[in-house]
Nucleic acid binder design. Sequence first.
RNA 1: GCCCGGAUGGUGAAACUGGUAAACACAGCGGACUUAAAAUCCGCCGCCGCAAGGCUUACGGGUUCAAGUCCCGUUCCGGGCACCA
Length: 877
Amino acid sequence: MSEKQTPAYTPSEVEAAARRYWDDSQTFKAIEDASKPKYYCLSMFPYPSGKLHMGHVRNYTIGDVLTRFHRMRGYNVLQPMGWDAFGLPAENAAIKNAVPPAKWTYDNIDYMRQQLKALGFAIDWSRELATCQPSYYRWNQWLFLRMLEKGIAYKKTQVVNWDPVDQTVLANEQVIDGRGWRTGALVEKREIPGYYLGITQYADELLDDLDTLDGWPERVKTMQANWIGKSTGVRFAFSHDVRDDTGALIDDGRLWVFTTRADTIMGVTFCAVAAEHPLATHAARNNPELAAFIEKCKHGSVMEADMATMAKEGLPTGLSVVHPLTGESVPLWVGNYVLMSYGDGAVMAVPAHDERDFGFAKKYELPIRQVIAVGNNAFSTDAWAEWYGSKDGVCVNSGRYDGLGYAAAVDAVAADLAGKGGEKKVQWRLRDWGVSRQRYWGCPIPIIHCDHCGDVPVPDDQLPVVLPEDCIPDGSGNPLLKRDDFINVACPKCGAAAKRETDTMDTFVDSSWYYARYCSVGNDAAMVDERANYWMQVDQYIGGIEHAILHLLYSRFWSKVMRDMGLMSVKEPFARLLTQGMVLNHAWLHKPEGGGKNYYWESEVEVQRDAKGQITGGRLKADGTVLEHELTTMSKSKNNGVDPQALIDQYGADTARFFMMFASPPEQTLEWNDAGVEGAHRFLKRVWNFAQDYTAELRARVPAASTLGKAKLPAALADLRRELHLVLKQASYDLGKQQFNTVASGCMKMLNALEKAPRDGVEAAEVIGEGLSMLLRVLSPICPHITHVLWRDCGFGDDILSAEWPEPADSALVQDEVELMLQVNGKLRGSLRVAADAAKDAIEAAALANESAQKFMEGKPAKKVVVVPGRLVNIVC
RNA sequence: GCCCGGAUGGUGAAACUGGUAAACACAGCGGACUUAAAAUCCGCCGCCGCAAGGCUUACGGGUUCAAGUCCCGUUCCGGGCACCA
């Protein structure tokens, strides 16, 4: 290192200078340009919760690295940013602090925008949007009305969580252990009307097009396919003669069921209906016990996870239905596990071959009849065995179906049921998307209720329906209900006094198309314009794996609707998807009696650990309350978010970005820990010092015209150059793989090599200059500020972003000899140096002649010699 | 409960298409420089063993000349489960 005094690395100055340059030259303003390949890089926009947390830093740094990398490779790049600004947390903050959600949200946006700017992301801020702006959400309303016209949007009843004390609808998150979060009251299910979007009309396409998404992670596609859940089965009816008060047969005397296991139909020993099923309601009229049970089923959660884990309970209705093939009378039960929302709200039960039915039958002592045999396995009703549910068996005890396999039996049964109205049917697990929310801080649903005309769509020329921004929710329901100025309106059809719809849209609507709006920002005449067809598809979408299903499926659906309406030409919105792993942190919570869930900051907690440092528990410092511990994603509501601000203030944005990228590969879950930030900062200081030394000491010796690759270098320099180019090759490959942690370590390897390099002579200066310029360029997507300044200081150019991405030179990579690992029976016993172009025979001979190999062969003859070129030789004896 | 992932030194991690396990760092230990400290630099650093060598990628099996990587089973941890976003 130089003895001279070099200017010290001061991140605040360096970063301010770089950002000033980008601002002054409007570097990141994206302009449509048909002459260049385009690259639309989009990170999922944040919910403006207050401050950034490390998950945001990870997400946006990944996006920024890809943005800058592609820019240097010659693409016309767009990276926009906006705010997913409607949602529940703003209402919660309003309840807590008596601040209107709008003010809270806009204040948060201002703070977080400044944080994003401090991180130096290459964002085109001229395209910024917030979903709570009327100029944005008017197009939610507009497209909703188009969907209504096409029958894609429609109205039906929905089941919601009802808090009987606050007289309000609760979000699933607000239901804790079956009780309202604020009141502690037992939550009830309640049916209310709401609007739905017919995503199931697109189920086939959403499933089939997964195969076209080559740039998506397999696991996301698998999850979506399972979620859509196409199953082929048979829908048929058990007949009955149950009549209602008017004497009419209920449902025309037919109990419809759907099954994927029609081959087990001869094993049906009972049927079960959901508590809301008309037959259950009918049976309960004169059966107080059943009525009480049905009432009980109305309590509790509507969440699938709760439904699936709760005890399976049921009660007989006293009614029976008739088996369509045997004519047998089959008892009818009400089961709390039967969902009214799936299929027809009724199931046939085959206890012998369905695990849930088996458990139910054992509990209520219902018959279990084996109708499938697999090999010689012995069937017993004592306990469930895995093979009972197998589709690999043949029918037994099934009369004319005996001996048939699964597919043949299903076909035969379906054929026999066809005469009785039964049919093969495709059933989807996917349900239509309920978008009505009984909440204030969201996009108003553009409907007016008129006593004379019914539900009337708001005419296009009256859009947007603007949400008043000065309401303060108090937890007792939607404050719009009290806003006469909002509610009272003339019917657009007949002019009579009418009422506005007060429900707002699910915030997933807002995030289903924002990627298209970025392309058409500023256009008040259309939802999207031709600029969307220039930028779309999003070439690279980046966001948390927690969005693998809902957000990503809704976005795919929405964009297909936009395509069908001629608004956009692409059929899929996101060509490539990178799902970053969650950034986890410890969370500490207490569930007080009477309901609710309180989270505490770790600083408020006395953490207890075992000898290995594993957390065993914790108590609140203030009063010793025993707390539950969980390792979970950073979020404001859990008081476990780590604000990057302290890191940025202390070390600078480049260090924060480098550390985040270096910590682990992007898709991996990351348990937050800032040990190691020092190391990242130390590295940047070394880069700084090395570059300053280069400028002071070596730069003047570098010849104007490069001589590298033309003459043979001295061995030490040839080795150095080879190492630098090898690391470069790997780093470029890793960037392509989107594995940024090894790109960061590659930069460290380059610097390690450069620091050890000989410095005498023209050739050394030239090799070092080349290496340093490669290092700065490879590092620049991760640490854009320091590399921008050093690029100029070292005289490589004005703007590193306009520099070409470095390519490894073949001349640097050639080598005469290679080292092969030498194994005997798969165990490493030495190594072998051979000419790079040595023939297989020669390598074998050299291996067998090797002293170490002979020692471990113990005189035995070689049975086989495996040569893996460039890697190893394995002698098997 | 169901669907999808993950597990490698004290720590974060690396390992190409099945081919040298632990690159690059953090922490730690030892040393240099310094009156001292900080900063910086150099060395050591999976486990057992004096060594030769043996063992080691959550656990138990299997395939292979060769397994962190492929297959089967298990445990634990994380994400999602439709009104958190």
